[in-house]
Amino acid sequence: MPPTDSTAVAGQPAIRFENVVKKFGDHVVLDDLNFDVQRGERVTLIGPSGSGKTTILRLVMTLEHLTGGYVFVDGEPLTHMEVNGRRVERRPKDVARTTQKIGMVFQQFNLFPNMSVLENITEAPVHVLGRSQDQARTRGLELLDQVGLADKADEHPTRLSGGQQQRVAIARALAMDPEILLLDEVTSALDPELVGEVLGVLRDVAKSTDITMLIVTHEMQFAQDVSHRVLMFDGGSIVEEASPDVMFTAPEHERTRAFLQAVL
């Protein structure tokens, strides 16, 4: 299935990495990385740990500082832009406006323990998007129902299982109506028997919305089922790029074959 038509209309990719460099001290994680993610497209990043996949998501969410190059979201510069040939940082307010379009689900769920499940979901819609408590509550309950946790609205997040917590985290991200959803190894911290429920919810989201998704996962079957495109990373650069059918059945690169053989 190709990405949705809106790509053609709007013309700008949802996410664009342009000559992106990311270093931690002297360690270069990403070196001159370029790629686009079209609107409505679901792209999975695979590769060995330390290959820079998670760093890519964290750069898009502005959780890491961009060392060099540019990231664009919907054609807008994210944290840095070029003014008169010079690379300058954007004002935090402008960055915040852009990042509102982006949601993220983390490996460790990161629910707020001082709030109920429903409050976790309504906090940002009320205080960032300016929705009324009632609106946010109604939408929050809808989302909880969608992730199969309608009866846990007033529960304390710490009383939930890992799988339930992660489903709440997905609902919390969706409550902001993101155009882009970043999924960072969302099942890696879960007991094996809880992985299915979380992936099930994400499959539904993928099927029922046109949210652009950038996914880092070790669940190759899930990647194959939901992605439009898969990027194989190694050492901070793209080794191979293909549709999931090709990537998982007939990869071209030796490095990809070796990686897939090890994980499948």
């Binding site: 959780l63 990042t99 509102q100 993220m104 707020f112 906090e123 205080h127 991200a173």
Partner: peptide
């Protein structure tokens, strides 16, 4: 750190992040 990051991912303002989360 994940609590700060989750609050950032929800675009909460720095003041609200600190006060409420």
């Amino acid at each position: 750190k994940g609590q700060w990051e989750a609050a950032t991912a929800l675009s909460l303002s720095p003041a609200r992040k600190l006060r409420k989360i």
